[in-house]
Computed example of a mutant assay.
Amino acid sequence: MTDTRTAPYAALILRLSLGILFLAHAGLKIFVFTPAGTAGFFSSLGLPGWLAYVTIAWELVGAVALILGVLPRLAAIAMIPVLLGAIFTVHGPAGFFFTNPNGGWEFLGLWIVGLLALALIGDGPYALRPTPVGKR
C-alpha cells in the first residue's frame, strides 16, 4: 500500500537525486574532460564529435528541469536516450558490473529504472508547474 503522505517526498528525493547526477555528469564532461575532449572521445567511438556538445546540453537542460521540477515526468523520459546511448556505445560491451574495466552498465540500468519510476510516480512537491493558458 502506498503511503500518500510520504510518497510525494519520495518523488522529490528521486527527482533531485536524478537531476544532481545528470548535473554532475555534465560537469564532468565540461570541467574535467572538457567539451573538446568529450567530442574527441565520441569521435574515437565512431560517433560524430558534435554529438558530444548535444549530449552535454541535453544533460544540463534535463538536470535543471528535474531539479526545478519543470515538466519532470517528460524530462525523465527524455533523459533515457542519453543513458541508452552510453550503454550501447561504451558501457554495454564492458559487461554488467560497473566495477568491470571501462565500467559496466549496471549503474546506467538502475538510473534508467529511477527515471521510469519518477515518470510513473509524478513530480513530487516543490515542482515548478507551468500554469495552463486558460488558468492565468
Rank of each mutant, 00 (worst) to 15 (best):
I67R: 06
F22W: 06
A94W: 02
P93N: 09
A119T: 00
L28D: 09
S43K: 09
I121W: 15
E59C: 06
A11M: 09
L14F: 09
L14P: 05
Y9R: 15
F98D: 03
L28M: 15
A52L: 02
E106A: 05
H91E: 01
I87E: 00
L115W: 04
T34N: 12
A75P: 12
W58C: 03
A10R: 14
A119E: 00
I112D: 07
A117K: 06
P72D: 11
L60W: 15
F33I: 15
L12P: 12
A36I: 06
T55Q: 10
M79A: 13
L23E: 03
L14W: 02
G40Y: 02
G37H: 10
I20N: 08
T6N: 05
L110A: 15
P132C: 03
G27C: 02
D123F: 02
F33K: 15
T99R: 14
I56R: 05
E106P: 00
V90I: 15
W105M: 14
A24E: 12
V61E: 02
I56K: 03
I13T: 13
F33N: 15
T99M: 13
P35L: 11
R73F: 15
I13C: 08
Y9D: 05
S43P: 07
F97K: 13
G104E: 03
R136W: 07
W111E: 01
G114M: 07
F33C: 11
P130I: 03
G109V: 15
I30L: 04
M79C: 13
P35D: 04
A76L: 13
I87V: 04
P72Q: 09
A127D: 03
T6H: 03
A78V: 05
L60G: 10
P35F: 12
L110W: 07
T6W: 14
V32W: 11
H91I: 08
P35G: 01
T2E: 12
G134F: 12
K135V: 01
L83H: 06
L16N: 13
A75I: 12
L14R: 14
L128D: 03
L45Q: 10
A94G: 08
A26E: 04
K29Q: 07
D3F: 00
I80F: 02
Y9T: 02
P132M: 11
A10Y: 15
F31Y: 13
L68F: 03
L12Y: 00
G114E: 01
P125D: 06
L71S: 10
I20H: 05
P35H: 15
V61I: 13
A65K: 14
G19V: 06
V113Y: 14
L115I: 04
D123V: 00
G46E: 03
A65C: 14
L28C: 08
A127T: 11
M1D: 12
L28N: 10
V61G: 04
A57K: 08
G109A: 07
T89I: 03
F96S: 06
I67W: 10
V82R: 09
G92L: 13
V113W: 04
I121T: 02
L23C: 12
L23D: 01
P72C: 07
P101N: 07
G62E: 01
